[in-house]
Amino acid sequence: MTRQVLLLNSDKPEVIAALARRPDLTVRVMTRKVYADLYRGLEVAYVDDFADLTQVEQAAYDLAAHGPLDHVVAATEKSVPAAGLVRSLLGVPGPGFGPSLWGAHKRAMKDRLLAAGLPVTDYAQAATVDDVPRAAEHTGWPVMIKPVFGAASKCTYRVDSPEEFGERHGAGDFADLADRRLPVQVERLVRFTHEYHCDGVVHAGEVARAAVSRYFLPPLRVAPHLKSGYVADQTDPFSREVLDLHRRVVAALGLPFGVTHLEVFRTGTGPVIGEVAIRPGGAGISRMWWHAFGVDLWEEFVRVSTGEPPSRPDRAPRPDTTGRSRLPALPGLRERVLALPGVLEVLTPEECASPGHLEAYFTCADETAAEAFIGRLHETAVPTV
Rank of each mutant, 00 (worst) to 15 (best):
G170F: 11
G91R: 10
V201G: 03
F293G: 05
M288N: 08
L177F: 04
G342P: 03
L25Q: 00
S311Q: 11
Y39H: 03
V143E: 11
S88P: 02
I374R: 01
T269R: 11
A329P: 04
Q125R: 14
V249S: 00
T121E: 14
E195Q: 15
R180S: 10
D233E: 14
H138S: 15
T193C: 04
D236R: 12
F174C: 09
R266K: 12
A116S: 11
V120W: 00
P313E: 02
T306R: 05
T156V: 15
Y61V: 13
E359D: 09
D11E: 10
W102S: 14
P256Q: 06
E163I: 08
L338E: 13
G332C: 07
G94I: 10
G117K: 12
W141A: 08
E206R: 15
G166T: 14
T235K: 09
T322I: 14
H194L: 15
A51E: 07
A365M: 00
D48Q: 14
Y230N: 09
V343W: 00
P133Q: 11
G323I: 06
V186E: 05
V29P: 02
A283V: 11
V72N: 07
L53A: 05
E137L: 13
A339R: 06
K154M: 14
E263R: 08
V272R: 05
W298K: 06
Q4A: 13
T193E: 15
R181H: 09
M30D: 03
V337H: 02
A171W: 04
V264T: 05
R326T: 06
P13D: 00
V222E: 06
A329I: 10
G96N: 10
R303V: 10
S239F: 10
